[in-house]
Design a protein around this nucleic acid. Structure first.
Length: 576
RNA sequence: GGGCCCAUAGCUCAGUUGGAUAGAGCGUCGGACUACGAAUCCGAAGGCCGCAGGUUCGAAUCCUGCUGGGCCCGCCA
């Protein structure tokens, strides 16, 4: 890649000055195109060590540059001491070959060196359908995992099933209550106020009855089999099905229940014991709140998370002797470490933000490190009116409903249209619109337009795009060179987005790149068309369009969004 | 009371990990097709980057303190 070549050239010049060439300096495309292809701040960074005026220093660097291949066309000092560098046009023209060579792999790198990485995301309770907030977490997790793969990490995707604890008993009870409603001949079990009120519980009850469930038996006797049936059914028919519709795949669904069955908890606690990181303490009552009825002043076994950045130690067992939910989560993360994952990433909604410090602290206590992506919640709007999502409420908007009205492509793009730590207003009305206010249309159209051009070249002239080292020198327009530069930035963008765990950057890149393409296309459509009587220019431009389409397709694949060859015709105008 | 996140154009948001004259979409106003898809593009107007300090060659970006908004606080899951 040219940038590395340029960095080496500058580094060598700095070395010849007797300065540490390893010292990091930035080499980035400047905001203003007039400033050249790259701006280096080397002289600014080195001014202290060199004890020299940065502009003078910049000149000394320039004087010592050796560029036998002649890739640098011009280099000058600007502003406080930047080196503005413009590369020879031929460099860019020939670099286009990278895309032709790497094709569907263009954008990948080995920055991650195959580091075994686990991304845990969604992890919704198996007590109901996925809602819109889960959808955002699903897309962020999925695309972060894709990014890491593209950046050379070895990635495993896992979903943690909370199929143990009080909520699943609550679910079992809800199903039984609905089942007795369906069988008037048996004694009615009333639905409690805390029970799950959703319509889907009736479906579970029907399925349970169809499978031979007996609602006449006492709850205590059947609750275990009912729990298993209900969570399995919901996982299979609601959660996994929704994820499939959304194009989201997991390598593994990890059961909390199994964690308990296999005594993983005890193993994790033993490790912490051995490290001397447990204690028995009387915890203070919750801060800032009235000490409620449940608080009992009694010593509990805790893990000393406060040693690792948490503001207090956290109990592993409740006063009734049962393990806490947190203990199970600690055990789960211990299991991840035991399985050999070096990099752990969790994707959580903002409602779990208060949990971050203790979980990171616990993982650190066990000798690992955990990164947590917190995404802010989704405000679902319809006609400007917000409605709240709540899993317990009878009426809420599920991910599936959203997918049905907006489709998976638009929904994915919408969720990635903002940085994860910004709250997202998702207007269902807007997502339903089939026009270019919907950003996914703009982005997909860019790809389709490339396809249309290549199609026309083939159908009308019988020309297929190919790499032609000689012809590509015909790419002389500034917009063409600019487009090549943008495309060649893609691999670095992917690596940076992966490092920052920020998938939204890919969406913005797509929008900007396509805007540049449309601008180029429109500006020259009457004077310098892609397909013309000039065979050499035509070949060169088709080669560029092909590379553009390839890059757009790769970026869309990274987002899990389809790259259509043609868009559906716009709906016909209604006759007045 | 305490913690996390946010505050940038009228609105919704980017801002290349501290760089030069802060950008895009929508909206407003004015323009461009006898078509390789106008489902697009070009131009104009629009800014005390919430406020006040600090760090340094240089701050929308980092540190502190305020102001306003969102999420949260547990031996629940």
């Amino acid at each position: 890649m040219v940038k590395e070549k340029l960095r080496a050239i500058l580094g060598a010049a700095i070395g010849r000055l007797g300065l540490p060439e390893a010292r990091e300096f930035q080499l980035e495309p400047p905001r203003q195109a007039e400033h050249g292809d790259f701006a280096a701040n080397a002289a600014l960074v080195l001014q202290k060590i060199a004890k020299a005026n940065p502009r003078k220093l910049a000149q000394e660097i320039i004087d010592r540059i050796e560029d036998p291949e002649g890739i640098i066309e011009r280099i000058e000092i600007a502003g406080p001491g930047f080196l503005n560098i413009r590369l020879a046009r031929q460099v860019w023209q020939s670099e286009l070959e990278t895309i032709w060579r790497e094709r569907e792999r263009f954008g990948r790198s080995d920055a991650g060196k195959g580091t075994r990485t686990m991304v845990e995301f969604v992890s919704a309770n198996p007590t109901g359908p996925l809602h819109v907030g889960h959808g955002r977490g699903a897309v962020i997790g999925d695309v972060v995992a894709n990014l890491l793969e593209w950046a050379g990490y070895s990635v495993y995707r896992e979903f943690y099933i909370n199929d143990a604890g009080g909520q699943v008993w609550r679910l079992a009870h809800s199903v039984l209550a609905r089942a007795t409603e369906l069988r008037p001949e048996v004694k009615r079990v009333p639905l409690d106020a805390e029970d799950y009120q959703g319509e889907y519980v009736r479906e579970v009850a029907e399925a349970w009855l169809a499978a031979g469930g007996d609602p006449a038996r006492p709850f205590e006797e059947i609750r275990e089999s009912l729990r298993k049936f209900a969570t399995d059914w919901i996982l299979q028919n609601l959660i996994k099905e929704d994820l499939r519709l959304f194009g989201i795949r997991f390598d593994h669904f990890f059961s909390e229940k199994r964690l308990h069955d296999e005594h993983a908890l005890e193993a994790a606690v033993r490790l912490l014991d051995e490290k001397g990181l447990t204690a028995v303490e009387v915890l203070p009552p919750p801060k800032g709140q009235e000490p409620d009825e449940e608080y009992v002043e009694k010593p509990l076994k805790v893990v000393k998370t406060s040693r690792f950045g948490d503001d207090r130690d956290r109990p592993l067992y409740k006063s009734n002797g049962e393990p806490t939910y947190f203990a199970a989560d600690v055990a789960y993360h211990f299991d991840k470490l035991s399985r050999g994952y070096r990099r752990l990433i969790d994707v959580w909604g903002a409602d779990h933000a208060g949990y971050v410090a203790r979980m990171k602290a616990a993982v650190k206590a066990m000798g690992g490190e955990l990164e947590i992506i917190i995404f802010q919640l989704v405000n679902l709007l319809k006609d400007g009116q917000p409605f709240r999502m709540s899993k317990r409420a009878a009426n809420f908007v599920t991910l599936r409903e959203l997918l049905e009205v907006a489709g998976p492509d638009a929904t994915r793009v919408f969720f990635l249209l903002r940085r994860g730590d910004m709250a997202l207003d998702f207007d269902v009305g807007l997502a339903q619109r089939r026009d270019n206010d919907n950003p996914v249309f703009y982005v997909q159209y860019g790809h389709a337009r490339c396809a249309a051009i290549l199609r026309k070249a083939k159908e009308e002239k019988g020309i297929e795009p190919r790499w032609d080292k000689e012809a590509v020198a015909a790419l002389q327009l500034p917009e063409e060179i600019d487009l090549i530069k943008r495309l060649l930035q893609f691999p670095e963008l992917v690596a940076h987005a992966a490092q920052a765990l920020e998938p939204h950057r890919i969406v913005f890149y797509l929008q900007e790149t396509i805007a540049a393409f449309h601008g180029y296309y429109t500006k020259y459509k009457r004077t310098e068309r892609v397909i013309s009587d000039d065979a050499r220019k035509t070949a060169a431009r088709l080669s560029l369009i092909w590379a553009l389409q390839r890059t757009l397709a790769n970026a869309l694949a990274l987002l899990g969004v389809s790259a259509p060859e043609r868009m559906e015709a716009p709906e016909a105008e209604e006759v007045a």
